[in-house]
Design a protein around this nucleic acid. Structure first.
Length: 257
DNA sequence: ATGGCGCGCGCAGCGCGA
């Protein structure tokens, strides 16, 4: 089973690329972020015609998450329980006996911003919810745009980025708190190329120069981590015309024994 | 040189992302 996450930065613009990528990469479950579409405008027909089930929770202009699956999606849940939020950033569903949680973590903008305080509160609520959720779902995968580069090796220029949003210590502590729940960073279960990133700024020819950050992650509960045989960043979509600034991350799991 | 690009909205130029 292949699980994937991709921040598409507008599903309206990226739909043709997404459909091509689904065909080429052949994942089983895909979590999307920044769809930027109201539910009434979600391209359900095109996605279903390509052979996918879809659950989605969107809004106009900002945010928006979706889960696509070859197999039926059950127990769809929008948002973090007991954390009222107008921003559509969380979607969970059960697929093939696994709980899939799709997240678009707030960016935070800057350390002195209200948005940063919201990011930390949001992450605390996510952690508390997942602690509980893991007791109910031993097979759980948390996929998405975390807007956190967990380690200096996930940053092209750690000195320039030191202390800034996406790499600050409070954010990294929240990422560690997710690992402390027993979740494993699928990408780091394996030997990886140096300077592996999942996002590059549109400016400064950042992709060509590989000035990126690794901020899109797949975290797996122990039971799923034990079945994980590969995790890769797929840079191919970033080379296309009008790409998303993020690129997909894919984890491959063996069938349960 | 704090911009630089791309997106949505909506029809000019701004807010936002990371």
């Amino acid at each position: 089973m292949k699980l994937a996450t991709w921040n598409v930065n507008s599903l309206k613009i990226r739909l043709p690329q997404l459909l091509d990528w689904l065909q080429a990469a052949a994942p089983d479950v895909v979590c999307l972020q920044e769809t930027k579409l109201e539910d009434a405008r979600f391209p359900r027909a095109e996605i279903e015609a390509a052979g996918w089930q879809a659950a989605f929770a969107g809004q106009k202009t900002y945010n928006g998450v979706a889960i696509l699956s070859r197999a039926p999606l059950g127990d769809v849940q929008v948002g973090i329980p007991d954390f009222p939020d107008e921003q559509q950033r969380v979607l969970a569903a059960t697929v093939a006996n696994c709980r899939i949680v799709c997240v678009y973590v707030p960016n935070g903008q800057a350390l002195d911003s209200d948005k940063y305080a919201y990011k930390l509160r949001w992450l605390d609520a996510l952690i508390a919810w997942l602690r509980d959720e893991l007791t109910r779902h031993p097979r759980l995968a948390l996929l998405g745009d975390y807007n956190i580069a967990p380690d200096d090796r996930d940053v092209h220029d750690p000195v320039a980025w030191a202390g800034q949003v996406l790499v600050s210590e409070p954010e990294r502590q929240r990422f560690q708190a997710l690992l402390d729940l027993g979740l494993k960073d699928a990408f780091r279960l394996f030997e990886q190329p140096e300077q592996s990133y999942s996002w590059w700024d549109y400016r400064q020819a950042a992709f060509r120069r590989n000035l990126g950050l690794r901020i899109d992650h797949i975290l797996l509960s122990p039971e799923l981590a034990a079945r994980c045989v590969a995790c890769e960043i797929d840079k191919a979509p970033r080379r296309l015309e009008r790409p998303s600034d993020h690129t997909p991350v894919v984890a491959t799991l063996n069938a349960p024994t």
